[in-house]
Amino acid sequence: MATLSYQRAILGGSLGEGAAISTAMIPFLLGAILISWFGLQAPEVAAGRKQ
């Protein structure tokens, strides 16, 4: 996605399209980070946070 964004915005001259692709990465990135952050927390830590 980063490569496509660069190609569309810088090489292709369509800055709007490139920017749209870059910002479209954010939800995917956020989802991946939330899964890796909360999914891999120790069960004891997660339980402690709930209490």
């Binding site: 980063a2 490569t3 990465m25 995917f28 990135l29 991946a32 980070i33 927390q41 120790a42 830590v45």
Partner: peptide
């Protein structure tokens, strides 16, 4: 169990770096 907090941090950074990788692909 003692390593899970470190694993969570490492995996978060690893996902972040890999997802936004540009140089290698380019």
């Amino acid at each position: 169990p003692l390593l899970t907090p470190i694993i969570a941090v490492v995996m978060t950074f690893s996902v972040l770096f890999t997802f936004t990788d540009f140089q290698l692909i380019w």
